[in-house]
Design a protein around this nucleic acid. Structure first.
Lengths: 187, 187, 187, 187
DNA sequence: AATGAATGAGCATTCATTCAT
DNA sequence: CATGAATGAATGCTCATTCAT
């Protein structure tokens, strides 16, 4: 019951961020979109900053970590493929995540702890890539560059799929896009 | 004189967007940062929306087209390399551009005509890639996917260079990053 | 409760218009005078223009029609006397009405529908005077001239009573003033 | 030359007051309407208040006093008739005067000396009426009441003539209206 | 717990006034 | 003298937050 209301609040916030950006977010609009009273928001969150940071934590926790636990013992290329496929599906399923995540991190609302959390997924990826380099599977290039390529592509590609009415995320397009990605970074 | 003031306004806006996001932009802060009076902003722009859209148009006009004219008759791979190098330099020189452009397009301030203008650089790139595919230099993959890779990587890589205190944009890192990019899309 | 607040807003607006004219009206002053917060004004009215037009409609609805219904079947002279007495009392009771009405109609705040409403009381009077002329009680002079006399006198006289600390609206002064008025227009 | 510019300023002010009321008067609009630069207004007047008060003085000096000097030795009824006719003509010739005068006196711009001047015409009239009462020509009614009638009628009648497209100020309507007025106040 | 009307600090915008040209 | 761009105080309006119900 309580969870349901929380989810409605988060969904409303994501949805509105996609429409008006974080710049246009109003507490009253979030409440309206979530079909609750404005005051109720303040039973769940201390203030607007608190709400936005909570949503950020939730989104972060759902994506990277959720993937990691399922795949951490597979070979590197398979692991990267699974991550690619899963991340892409999740992002395309709700592209609003990306929009929110990107806007949030340079908004006046980010808390210190949110900033710290930003690198969780990147750090896991970095470890994976370092291991791949040692095992001669991955090019010996600064991991940060490799990560920029992988994440940048992931982000832009999912946005493209969502925005382009003619595109859909098929198994073929997942494979095709991963192939490009892998070819770029593999030794 | 007048131009100088306009530029100060635009620089101030970019700089502040990087610090607080579009959500945190105040007309008074922009004026202060540009060392003019708040009221003066309204001599140049009808209102906040007008100012932000004017900046968007200016940034769009300065980036992609500026590059295109210099390189359009070179071979595809050279052309891509030149674009990569120039775009990367320009973006790293002022990474605030990316931040502003990304935030602006989903803010409540975008005008209809700004939305239309979004795809100029992407369209040029698309043409170039199509040509490359015909000439068997580029993989026969949906151009939108290729563009997502190139632009996503460009964006994320420049952001990484700017944010990471230890990184600088050297000739080596330009070449290294382009090599990754090229390897991903070349046939 | 809600009505009470609305009335406090209207009273405050009238009172301030008398002191500083419509030119000097500030939303913040109205709120202060009504003992509410500035923001509360915007729960009841979209903006300043909306508030002023609503007050105008309310005043128009309260004055002329309120009188008319009580007297419409009496002989003309009695009817005019009753109207004179009642209107005078009402205007003197709250002379701010006149000030507001006069200022409002040439202010930048008048809406189109407010303009249309202006002539209600004058039209009733005109009908009454036409009837009086047919019955040989009233001079055969253009009704507009007669109305100008009656209303001009009414307006100026009530203003005089209100402004002059030594004057009060006694039965005697009502009768005396009406006698002048009647003598001017009677055949 | 200088006079011409002053007149253009005054005309512009009157004209704009009729359109937007004193509440809507902007120094920049006055300048534009007078075809001069905004700053030039401040060569002629210390500030907005000063300009408006100067206009008030000018209007007052042109009307009542101008009449008084021409007629002060004639019999009372003739004197009143002349005043009536002249005042009516002047007011109808430029009805903006009335609008300005009425708005100005309750605006936040009135200076103390303007307030004092307000009664000049009324005082002359009052003296005239007192004399008439002593000579048994005028009803023995409080002069303030009589003045309210005369001035209220004058004001409303001239406004009516100006606003009603079908009315014009003919000799007949001057005589007719004065007859009503005289009948009301004469013994 | 839930509500949403009320609050008032904060921001966008206006406009009287100044001053460099 | 004349200009009109520049100024910034003042005002309209918004919206995060509170609180009586």
């Amino acid at each position: 019951m309580k969870d349901d209301k929380l989810n409605r609040i988060f969904d409303a916030t994501l949805s509105l961020t996609g429409k008006v950006g974080i710049a246009g977010l109003k507490m009253s609009s979030i409440a309206k979109e979530a079909s609750i009273a404005t005051g109720t928001l303040y039973l769940y969150f201390k203030n607007k900053e608190d709400l936005l940071n909570a949503l950020y934590f939730k989104l972060q926790k759902e994506s990277a970590p959720a993937l990691i636990s399922e795949i951490k013992n597979l070979p590197i290329d398979i692991q990267l493929y699974k991550m690619w496929a899963l991340a892409l599906k999740k992002l395309v399923e709700n592209n609003l995540r990306i929009i929110f995540l990107e806007q949030f991190l340079i908004s006046p609302y980010v808390s210190a702890s949110s900033k710290e959390m930003d690198s969780r997924f990147k750090n896991y990826l970095k470890g994976l890539l370092e291991k791949g380099k040692k095992e001669n599977q991955i090019k010996d290039v600064d991991s940060n560059i490799l990560i920029a390529l992988v994440i940048g592509f992931l982000r832009n590609f999912s946005t493209h799929i969502v925005n382009d009415k003619n595109s859909k995320l098929s198994e073929k397009s997942i494979d095709e896009s991963f192939a490009l990605c892998w070819e770029a970074i593999k030794r």
